[in-house]
Amino acid sequence: SADYSSLTVVQLKDLLTKRNLSVGGLKNEWVQRLIKDDEES
């Protein structure tokens, strides 16, 4: 899986927004959300 934890907050928020995922919570929660989205898609 991609190394989301190395991305900036701005990059992570951009990815979350593009995938229609929530940008609520902490940075590590966003990373988990993106990883989960990868596994489900």
Score class of each variant (00 low, 15 high):
Val23Leu: 14
Val31Ala: 03
Glu39Tyr: 11
Val23Pro: 06
Arg33Gly: 04
Ser1Cys: 10
Trp30Glu: 06
Leu34Asn: 03
Gly24Val: 14
Leu7Ala: 02
Asn20Arg: 08
Arg33His: 04
Leu15Asn: 00
Ile35Thr: 08
Val9Gln: 09
Leu16Cys: 05
Glu39Gly: 08
Ser41Ala: 13
Ser22Glu: 08
Lys36Pro: 01
Ser6Trp: 06
Thr8Asn: 08
Leu26Pro: 11
Thr8Arg: 03
Glu29Tyr: 03
Gln11His: 05
Ser6Ala: 08
Val9Ala: 12
Asn20Leu: 07
Ile35Trp: 05
Ser1Ile: 14
Glu40Cys: 09
Leu15Gln: 05
Lys13Glu: 07
Asp38Trp: 05
Gln32Lys: 09
Val9Phe: 09
Asp37Ser: 08
Asp38Phe: 05
Leu16Asp: 01
Asp3Ile: 12
Leu21Tyr: 00
Val23Met: 13
Ser1Glu: 09
Asn28Asp: 14
Ser1Pro: 13
Leu34Gly: 00
Lys13Phe: 14
Ser5Trp: 14
Val10Trp: 12
Leu7Arg: 02
Asp37Asn: 14
Asp14Ile: 08
Leu21Pro: 06
Lys18Asp: 09
Ser41Ile: 12
Ile35Val: 10
Glu29Asn: 05
Val23Ile: 13
Glu39Val: 09
Lys13Gly: 02
Leu16Val: 02
Gly25Asp: 05
Thr8Gly: 06
Ala2Phe: 15
Lys27Pro: 15
Asn28Gly: 10
Lys13Asn: 05
Leu15Tyr: 04
Leu15Lys: 02
Ser1Asn: 13
Leu34His: 00
Lys36Leu: 12
Asp37Lys: 05
Val31Cys: 05
Gln11Gly: 03
Trp30Leu: 15
Ser5Tyr: 14
Leu34Trp: 02
Leu16Pro: 00
Gln11Lys: 06
Val23Asn: 06
Ala2Asp: 12
Lys36Val: 07
Asp38Leu: 06
Asn20Tyr: 06
Leu16Ile: 03
Thr8Trp: 02
Ser22Phe: 06
Val23Phe: 09
Leu7Ser: 01
Val23Lys: 07
Leu12Asp: 01
Glu39Ile: 14
Glu29Thr: 06
Thr17Val: 14
Asp38Glu: 07
Gly24Lys: 14
Val31Pro: 02
Asp37Met: 05
Leu26Val: 11
Val23Gly: 07
Leu21Gln: 01
Trp30Arg: 02
Lys36Gly: 05
Gly25Tyr: 01
Gln11Leu: 05
Arg33Val: 05
Lys13Ala: 07
Leu12Pro: 00
Arg19Glu: 05
Ser41Lys: 14
Leu15Ser: 02
Ser41Asn: 14
Asp37Pro: 00
Gln11Phe: 06
Ser22Cys: 10
Leu26Asp: 15
Asn20Glu: 06
Thr17Pro: 02
Gln11Met: 07
Leu12Gln: 00
Gln32Tyr: 06
Lys36Met: 11
Ser41Gln: 14
Leu21Thr: 01
Val9His: 09
Ser5Thr: 11
Glu40Gln: 12
Leu34Ala: 01
Lys13Ile: 15
Ser1Gly: 13
Val31Met: 05
Ser5Asp: 10
Leu26Phe: 14
Lys36Asn: 09
Trp30Val: 03
Lys13Pro: 00
Leu16Ala: 01
Asp37Leu: 05
Thr8Pro: 04
Ser22Leu: 06
Asp37Trp: 15
Asn28Pro: 10
Gln11Glu: 11
Asn20Ala: 08
Trp30Thr: 02
Asn28Gln: 09
Thr8Ala: 04
Leu12Met: 04
Lys27Val: 13
Gly24Ser: 15
Leu7Pro: 00
Lys36Glu: 12
Asp37Ile: 02
Ala2Pro: 14
Ser6Ile: 11
Gly24Leu: 14
Asp14Tyr: 12
Leu26Tyr: 07
Val10Cys: 13
Gln32Leu: 11
Glu40Trp: 08
Asp38Val: 03
Leu7Tyr: 08
Glu40Asn: 12
Val23Asp: 08
Gln32Ala: 13
Thr17Ile: 14
Asn28Leu: 10
Arg33Ile: 06
Val31Phe: 04
Asp38Cys: 05
Gly24Ile: 13
Ala2Cys: 12
Lys18Gln: 11
Leu34Asp: 02
Gly24Cys: 15
Val9Met: 14
Val9Cys: 12
Gln11Asn: 03
Glu29Pro: 01
Ala2Ile: 15
Thr17Ser: 11
Leu16Phe: 01
Ser22Asp: 10
Thr17Tyr: 09
Thr17Gln: 13
Lys27Ala: 10
Glu39Gln: 12
Leu7Ile: 02
Leu34Ile: 04
Gly24Asn: 15
Ser5Gly: 12
Asp3Glu: 08
Arg33Leu: 07
Tyr4Glu: 00
Lys18Cys: 11
Val23Cys: 09
Arg19Asn: 05
Ala2Ser: 11
Val10Phe: 10
Glu39Ser: 08
Asp37Gly: 05
Ser22Gln: 07
Asn20Phe: 07
Val31Asp: 02
Leu15Pro: 01
Glu29Lys: 04
Gly25Lys: 01
Lys36Ile: 07
Lys27Ile: 13
Thr8Lys: 03
Leu34Pro: 02
Val10Glu: 15
Leu12Arg: 00
Lys13Tyr: 14
Lys27Thr: 10
Thr17Arg: 14
Gln32Gly: 06
Ser6Val: 08
Arg19Val: 05
Ser22His: 09
Arg19Ser: 03
Gln32Thr: 09
Leu21Arg: 00
Tyr4Phe: 01
Val9Tyr: 11
Trp30Tyr: 05
Glu40Arg: 13
Arg19Gln: 05
Gly25Ile: 01
Ile35Ala: 05
Gln11Ser: 04
Trp30Asn: 03
Lys36Thr: 09
Trp30Lys: 04
Leu26Lys: 14
Gln32Val: 06
Asn28Met: 10
Asp3Phe: 14
Gly25Asn: 02
Val31Trp: 02
Glu39Pro: 01
Ser6Asp: 08
Arg19Asp: 04
Ser22Thr: 06
Ala2Arg: 15
Val23Trp: 07
Glu39Cys: 14
Ser1Ala: 13
Ser1Thr: 12
Gly25Glu: 03
Val31Glu: 04
Ala2Met: 15
Ser6Pro: 00
Asp3Tyr: 15
